[in-house]
Design a protein around this nucleic acid. Structure first.
Lengths: 155, 155
DNA sequence: CGCCAATTGTCTACTAGGAAACAAAATGAT
DNA sequence: ATCATTTTGTTTCCTAGTAGACAATTGGCG
């Protein structure tokens, strides 16, 4: 009943939220092991990927989709803007909002970092078979109500 | 090609790490909707649950299992200790380490908060069937190399 | 024994991210 | 038109979590 080096997870092992928490932390460890000293963490990477896939996306739409709070999104976008990675524009039909698009420098940066990360992100983790990995991703997309990607997606 | 209110997720929809990140944030939203203004966030809850399931667990073992950095664990345990929720003791065979056990007050606190959260954590999320939920949890445990819980686990 | 390497918890800074209040612009009701 | 409500981005302050250096302890090895 005492505590060995491999503790008992108890209720945590049945709890979806905590399993997701631990799995995400493990995935990030692998992410950072791929990127030596990362220019961009997972949060910033997801923003770059999202703007790349959705040019002229509005800042608020981006924040909701990635579940990043607006306050935080403001800081990241402003730093991207200062670094010349995104170009912002105010649409004529709603002058409160900001439309975001990657600059050529932003696309370069994204491509370079993604090259170092994509194998870990798209590939199969050691603990799961390819089939299990596909099932896991499919269930996560369904949980999130995210559409499955098109078949011929770029690497 | 412009950006609608439901953006295209592109490479994110195939990337295990980012799917896990988004899923965890969604799960936390549901967690916080269950606990009005939470006495303990998910991180602290997982620590209480873990100490409850593993009395006399060493602080470092706990940190590794929950993937919380030692520096952070120190702060949380010290605050738990000040609040009278855990009892710490130095084992005779290794005077560097700390053994952690829940006090009666700690067990009470855990039971009270868990009551408000367990339905969301153990139940089936709206987007998935019961069977899909079970599969998802099983695959996450396998990804994490966590043993499946015993059958007759407490609610 | 004495010395060197690894481990454990802790401390001090720092970064990522959130909560709440706010101004400007849009929307809707009258 | 006018006023209240909502939305969007921003600002300030705060919390959760990390990075790196550190002292104390342990274990190995001559």
């Amino acid at each position: 009943m005492a505590a060995p080096d491999q503790p008992i997870f108890g209720a945590l092992a049945e709890s979806l939220g905590f399993l997701l928490r631990l799995a995400q932390l493990q995935a990030f460890d692998e992410y950072f092991s791929a990127e030596g000293s990362p220019e961009h963490g997972p949060g910033e990477m997801s923003i770059l990927l999202m703007i790349d896939a959705n040019p002229m996306i509005r800042q608020g739409v981006l924040a909701r989709a990635l579940r990043i709070k607006r306050a935080h999104m403001t800081k990241i976008i402003q730093s991207f803007d200062r670094a010349g990675l995104v170009q912002t524009s105010v649409p004529a039909d709603d002058r409160r909002s900001l439309e975001l698009t990657l600059t050529p420098a932003g696309k370069d940066r994204l491509a370079r970092v993604w090259d170092r990360v994509s194998l870990n992100e798209l590939g199969r983790p050691g603990n799961l078979t390819q089939r299990e990995t596909d099932t896991l991703k499919r269930l996560l997309r369904k949980y999130l109500s995210i559409a499955a990607p098109a078949e011929g997606a770029d690497a």
